[in-house]
Amino acid sequence: MDSEVSNGSGLEAEHLTDLLVFGFLQSYSDYSFYQELEALGQKLPVRVYLQDQDDELQTDGNRASRYFSQERIEPDSESQEEIIQNIARHLAQVGDEMDHSIHPTLVRHLAAQFMNRNLSEEDRRNCLATALEEIRKTYPKDMETEKAALIMTMLLAKKVADFRPSLLHDVFRTTVNFINQNLFTYVRNLVRN
């Protein structure tokens, strides 16, 4: 099984971050933006698996999930998608331990900035970068800086969407763009390894 993403085969690089952020967000069972996440999953140009809130247990011991597909995917992409989903779940578990370091006031302020329709996408990325800078000193000392920044970026997206579910689409797109600009090499290496 080849999990390379940079050699042109398999999952396209621009969709890797979409799947990672989506998988991270849907790893949480206590979010208030389920309907918005479901709608987002239908718009993504890659396969996504969204667990039902009812989380029905199947006879094989697995949980029921809905499956959305919008485009043709390369033959080895399904295994890559599973790898990305597993990485997203792991990062969400680590994020649970870091969650307390994001103050609710910061989340409310960031949500207010995302509600400002006069801000450009670049302005929103800068707002996200500023929020990350504010919480940088709370990163675990024993964790790689890039890993901590990636988790905190996705945690901020989750918290903003949880605070204001109507912002999910905007905060998702900005988060993906921010990660692609600042942390994509780290994300690509996570998938490769």
Results as ranks from 00 to 15, higher is better:
I84L: 07
Y186C: 02
A161S: 14
D30G: 12
S77A: 13
T175E: 02
A148K: 03
K147G: 04
D162N: 15
F163I: 00
I84Q: 00
E71M: 04
R136S: 14
V191Y: 07
E82R: 05
L168V: 12
K158H: 15
F114L: 00
Y34A: 03
M98A: 07
R108W: 08
E12T: 14
D99V: 02
R89W: 04
P165V: 09
L20M: 02
L119D: 02
H169W: 01
M1R: 01
D55A: 14
V191M: 03
R117G: 04
I102E: 00
S120K: 03
R124C: 05
S3D: 05
A88D: 04
S6Y: 13
S77V: 05
L19G: 15
T153R: 01
G23I: 11
R173T: 15
D55E: 07
K159C: 02
R192I: 13
N177S: 14
D52K: 10
T185L: 00
S101T: 15
R66F: 15
H103A: 09
E12V: 07
A148D: 07
N126M: 11
L155E: 10
R188P: 03
H109Q: 03
I84G: 03
G23L: 01
P140M: 04
L110G: 11
D2V: 11
G8S: 10
S120G: 11
L44G: 14
Q93I: 05
A112V: 11
V94Y: 08
L40D: 13
Y49T: 05
L128R: 01
